[in-house]
Design a protein around this nucleic acid. Structure first.
Lengths: 234, 234
DNA sequence: CCCCAGGTGTGCGATAATCGCACTAGGTGT
DNA sequence: ACACCTAGTGCGATTATCGCACACCTGGGG
């Protein structure tokens, strides 16, 4: 019996770094922290390995251990995250707050991720609305669900079998969705199109109203236009 | 010549993970992105190694490559960062916005990091002030510089050789600093003290006024008290 | 009190993952 | 066409990682 067939090691990615990142992702799903043993079980490595990974992350403030040794994500991550897409978020922030305030609804900036997904990069809630939606920054949704993704698709070349709403959005300049990612919520989004880089983001609002989306559409189109005029990637 | 003296490998931390994190830190200092070669030079590893690290980070969306192969930080980081100190930030957010609005100044939540540093976890700017300070979330300052750090120190046992301002803050309940971290800016901060965990944060504002800090002090003390009453760590 | 159970933390040898060479491929400017 | 630059890859040598075995601490019974 010639040992095991062929483990075929992957020389293209780094296993140790992969494990370290999995620790971070595991911790982000564990709001109340974990022990070293739980981390080891959670990602399927030996306890000693988890120990070394945690210590390394800790040195970089990517995780920390509280008074009784429980491990949670560390504030170093907020410093790193602050540098993600700085120029885009810098110009988008005032536009989003204005939009949220003017419409009395939650405004969001969403970027495409991979070929079929979109991630919320920024979410701004209105200050003085009677009621409004809240959802998590960093959230990922399929590109073909929700107004933000539809708006992004509408700024790309048509795909075979694309939803009818995309073609409609392409004509109107903004996309509308209802109860696709969140029950009872209507989304209205417009693509932010950079002359140089194509559709870099979408900007939109989540409203509770069910009637005519046209005024909202005009508002998000205008907001997207403002951002596109200011963003210039190298 | 008996080879090299003694390389003494470090078994306590993980070199590969360390390198991967250094890539992230390097990228956060490089707003316009880097090439693989630049990454390799920046952290002092072979180009092939940098290549593998980048690819691994990319799979987890911690970095991404734009149209012309330049590498920047990826949106996966904002999802991770969103989970840092969730409960604390959840309760602090409305308090900070109220504080910023009421005082017409930038409000901030700062947490201790290591024995001698403090990091800004959250920064909220006022909506309608004539002028206000802005600074970066995630920023690190020495614990004995600036009102936030002084406030944290004032809630800890006295240290040998501590600044006089700390004792003063201990008596008044809030700390005041002027032009210590930023020119011409006065900071006023109060510690957030959890009955169970001691000083977990400080909350404060950065103002341009130079006169009586007492009203600001009362406001930050009240804000810190509100947060302390709501935060309950496991 | 002592001992056990359940957890963290650590030295060290075997081994598998990483490193870096040598090479291919693609693009740019002369 | 050529020289020159950077990205990307297969593969053997080397070295970092893995995981065992053990020490240590803390709390709770017997």
């Amino acid at each position: 019996m010639p040992t095991t067939p062929a483990p075929q090691p992957d020389t293209r990615t780094s296993k140790t770094l992969h494990n370290g990142i999995e620790v971070l992702e595991l911790l982000s799903r564990s709001p109340h922290g974990l022990s070293v043993t739980e981390v080891a079980e959670g990602i399927g490595v030996h306890r000693t390995v988890a120990h070394r990974l945690v210590r390394t992350l800790e040195e970089h403030r990517l995780c920390k251990r509280d008074a009784f040794k429980r491990i949670t994500l560390g504030p170093g991550l907020v410093a790193l995250a602050e540098s993600v897409e700085v120029d885009l978020r810098e110009v988008a922030r005032p536009v989003l707050t204005d939009l949220a305030e003017a419409q009395g609804a939650t405004a969001h900036l969403v970027v495409p991720e991979g070929p079929d997904e979109a991630r919320a990069l920024m979410v701004v809630e209105p200050r003085h609305a009677r009621a409004h939606i809240a959802f998590r920054t960093g959230r990922v949704d399929p590109l073909d669900k929700g107004s933000a993704g539809l708006a992004l698709l509408s700024a790309m070349p048509p795909r075979p079998g694309e939803r009818e709403e995309v073609a409609l959005a392409r004509r109107r300049g903004y996309a509308v969705s209802h109860a696709e990612v969140t029950n009872a919520v209507t989304g209205v989004s417009a693509p932010v199109i950079s002359p140089r880089n194509g559709p870099v983001a979408s900007i939109g609002i989540s409203v509770l109203e069910l009637d005519d989306p046209a005024p909202f559409g005009a508002a998000v189109v205008e907001a997207a236009r403002r951002i596109a005029g200011m963003v210039h990637l190298p």
